[in-house]
Design a protein around this nucleic acid. Structure first.
Lengths: 226, 226
DNA sequence: CGGTCCTTTGATGGTATTCAATACACGTGG
DNA sequence: CCACGTGTATTGAATACCATCAAAGGACCG
C-alpha cells in the first residue's frame, strides 16, 4: 500500500454507502470511521497473501479486487471478485487466524482498511456491527455456493449467458459495458480467457454482440434457453 | 420433520459442544436453548428448499445433511455437506430473505432448529451470538473458497487424494472408515460417482486400498505428490 | 507511431460426463 | 443360515467439454 491516510470527505461518503457501514447505527459508524485508513492501490498490488497472519479488514471503495488461491506449482484460481462497496469476505478473519486466500488489486483501486483486532473489539460491544458482518458474510456465502453450483452444472457458454443476464435485469434488448477486462471476467467465471472468448463467439449466434467491452444483448429469452 | 421436541439432556449436551453454541456466554446459551427444537429426520427428508422464505436456522446434532442447488432441468450440485456439530450455513438467512439452496438429510439425522426471527432478535441484543454466527460463517466461506479453488485447480484423483490426506492427519500408514457413503463423498468433491470410483482405482497404484468404506493409506507422501 | 498487453483463433490432448450393463453389499424375510 | 431383492458401486465405451500451447490479430497508451 503506497499511501495510507485518514478518510477525507469523499471517502467517508463512499464508506457510508458501503455494504458494511450502511446498516450501522451512528455510533458504530463513528467508531469504524475512527479506525479506517484509506489506501490507493496500483494494479497488481497485493492486499494480503494466503497464509499470512490476518491483521486487517478490507473494503473496496473503487476499482476491483481479485481474490484467488494458489497451487503448489503456481497456478491461480480466482474465488471472488470484489467491486465498489464490497467488504472483502476473505479478509474477515475474526478468530485471529490467517488469511485463506490472496487479494490483489485488479486495477487502480481505492480501499479502506480496518484493524481487525479493533473491529473484533467494537463488534464484541456493538451487536449492530457484528450483525452487519454476519449479514455480509451470508451474502458472500450464498454467492460462493452459487458459483460452485454454476461451475458444476453449466458449460462455459451457459455460465457466460447467465452472467450477461444478471447484468441486464430488463427483459428486452440492451447494451452495456463490461465493468472490467475480459480476462478478469474469465477468472471470475472459472474459465481460461480463451474459453471465454469462444463462449462469446458461440453466443453470437444467439443474439449477443461483443465489441471490446461493449456488449449488446439482442434476445434475452434466447440467452435464457442456452 | 416428523417429530419436533424440546431438547432433552442428551441433546442439550450435544448442542453445547456444537460450533455455534460452544463459544457463547451462559445467558446466550440459555436463550438459544429456550428456542431450540429437536427433530429426527429419516434419510432423504428435506429440511428446506431453495427459494422458500427462510424461517428456521438449522444445526446438525448427528448424521449428515447435504446442501445442494438444482438446475432448471433437475440436475443437482452439492455445495456443502454438514456433519455433527455443524451449523448449516445455507440456513443462516439473517435478512429475512429466502433459502439459497436445498437441504436434505443424507442419513437418519438429528437436528436442532431455531426460529430465525428470534435468533435475529437475540443476536441483536447479544454480541456474542452475533459474533458466533459471523465466526461460523467465515469458516464456511473459507471452506467454500477452498472447494471452488480445488475444483478449478485439481483433477479428480488429486481432489480425492487431498480429501484422504485431510482425514488422516498422521504422516504414516493409516486405516480409517469413510464417514458416509461414496456417492455422498462424490457429490461433496464435485464428481459423478463413477469418477470417484475411477479415482480410487487409480490411487490403488499409489498405496491406497479401498474395500467398502474401509480405506487404507499406505504412503501419505506418495499421495501428496499426486 | 511503436510497443506492450489483451484478445482471438486454431489444433491438440487430457479429463470428466453420460449411458449402459455388471458386480457387489447389505438388510429382510423365508 | 441362506436366499433374495434393492440400492450402491464398479467397469467399459463413446462423447463432450475445457485447458493448454502456439501464433496472429487488435486495442490502448505513451
Amino acid at each position: 500500500m503506497n499511501r495510507l491516510m485518514k478518510p477525507g470527505a469523499r471517502e467517508r461518503e463512499t464508506l457510508l454507502n458501503s455494504g458494511l457501514l450502511s446498516a450501522l447505527g451512528v455510533e458504530s459508524v463513528a467508531a469504524m470511521m475512527e479506525i479506517a485508513a484509506i489506501g490507493n492501490l496500483p494494479p497488481r498490488q497485493l492486499l494480503f497473501r494466503e497464509g499470512e497472519p490476518a491483521d486487517m479488514l478490507h473494503s473496496v471503495l473503487s476499482g476491483y479486487v481479485r481474490v484467488y488461491k494458489l497451487d503448489p506449482d503456481g497456478r491461480e484460481a480466482d474465488v471472488e471478485l470484489y467491486g465498489p462497496g464490497d467488504l472483502i469476505g476473505a479478509s474477515v478473519v475474526l478468530d485471529g487466524g490467517r488469511y485463506g486466500a490472496t487479494a490483489q488489486a485488479a486495477e487502480p483501486s481505492l480501499i479502506a482498511r480496518f484493524d481487525l483486532k479493533r473491529v473484533r473489539d467494537i463488534a464484541g460491544r456493538r451487536p449492530d456491527l457484528a450483525m452487519a458482518l454476519a449479514n455480509a458474510l451470508t451474502g458472500q456465502l450464498a454467492r460462493a455456493f452459487a458459483s460452485l453450483a454454476d461451475d458444476r452444472l453449466h458449460t462455459a457458454p451457459q455460465r457466460v449467458a447467465r452472467y450477461l443476464l444478471a447484468q441486464c435485469p430488463v427483459d428486452k434488448a440492451t447494451s452495456f459495458r463490461l465493468p472490467y477486462q475480459k480476462s478478469l471476467l474469465a477468472g471470475k467465471l472459472g474459465l481460461a480467457p480463451e474459453a471465454l472468448s469462444r463462449a462469446f463467439s458461440m453466443l453470437r449466434g444467439h443474439g449477443v454482440n461483443v465489441r471490446g467491452r461493449l456488449v449488446h444483448i439482442g434476445d434475452p429469452d434466447a440467452l435464457r434457453r442456452i
